[in-house]
C-alpha cells in the first residue's frame, strides 16, 4: 500500500444520503477477478445516460451532464464530500476500489456504513466523519462558484478549506497504517506466536473446532 502523504485536492460534493455500494459500483462490474480498473464505472448509473456493461468503451458513452462528477469544476477531484450513511449495502470491496481507482483519496461525510468504513482504510482511502453542520457548510462552499480545494494533513488530523482549520478524529492504528503504507497481513503475521498459543489452548478446550 502506498503511504498516505499530505495533499491538497478538489472537493466533489455528492449531495445524497444513503449512497449504497450498488450505486457506487453497479453489480455488473463486480464480476472482474482483478482489483483495478473500476474507476471509469464509478457511479455508473448516475454518471452515464446509457446502461453500462463490462467491456464497453466508456470514453464513447454519453455522460449525464447533470451528475456532479461530470461537472467540469470537479474534474480531478480527490476528495468526495457526501451525506449520511455513505457506503451502505454490500461488504464488497469493489466500492472503495472504484473510488480509489477514480482518484479519490478522502471521503468526508457525517456518517458511514461500518464495513465500507473499514474497507476504505484497507485500500488507502481515508474516510472522515464530521458533524452535519460542518458538512452543510462544506457543501455550500464546494457547490457555489469555483471548486473548493481542501488541504488534508493526516498526521496533524486537520483539514484546511481555505484559511480555516477543521480537526478530525481517526483511529490511531488506522492512521499509523495509512501513514506508513502498512498492510494488515504483514502486521498480523508478526503475531505468529500469539496465534499459535491461542490455537493450542483452544484445541484443548474445544477440540471439535479443529476437526
Amino acid at each position: 500500500m502506498e503511504k498516505f502523504e499530505t495533499f491538497t485536492g478538489i472537493v466533489c460534493p455528492l449531495d445524497r444520503s444513503n449512497v449504497d455500494t450498488d450505486a457506487i459500483i453497479p453489480k455488473q462490474f463486480l464480476k472482474s477477478i482483478k482489483r483495478s480498473g473500476f474507476g471509469p464505472n464509478l457511479f455508473d448509473e448516475w454518471r452515464y445516460l446509457d446502461h453500462g456493461e463490462p467491456g464497453m468503451d466508456n470514453r464513447k458513452r454519453a455522460v449525464n451532464p447533470d451528475f456532479v462528477l461530470n461537472d467540469p469544476r470537479y474534474q480531478g477531484a480527490q476528495i468526495l464530500l457526501a451525506r449520511k450513511n455513505f457506503g451502505c449495502g454490500s461488504s464488497r470491496e469493489h466500492a472503495p476500489w472504484a473510488l480509489a481507482d477514480y482518484g479519490f483519496r478522502v471521503i468526508v461525510a457525517p456518517s458511514f456504513a461500518d464495513i465500507f468504513f473499514s474497507n476504505c482504510f484497507k485500500n488507502g482511502l481515508l474516510p472522515i466523519v464530521l458533524e452535519e453542520e460542518i458538512i452543510d457548510r462544506l457543501f455550500r462552499l464546494a457547490s457555489e462558484g469555483r471548486a473548493l480545494e481542501i488541504g488534508v494533513d493526516l498526521q496533524a488530523q486537520r483539514l484546511f478549506p481555505g484559511d480555516e482549520e477543521i480537526p478530525f478524529e481517526v483511529d490511531p492504528f488506522r492512521k499509523h497504517c495509512l501513514l506508513n503504507g502498512l498492510d494488515d497481513i504483514g502486521l498480523t503475521l508478526q503475531q505468529v506466536d500469539a496465534i499459535r498459543a491461542y490455537e493450542a489452548r483452544r484445541k484443548s478446550e474445544a477440540p471439535w473446532l479443529f476437526c
Binding site: 461488504s91 470491496e93 497481513i185 496465534i195
Partner: peptide, 14 residues
Amino acid sequence: IGTSEVEHVLATQC
C-alpha cells in the same frame, strides 16, 4: 468482511 479481510483470514486465520 471485505476482500482484503478475506485475504487476511486466509493468510492468518485472524
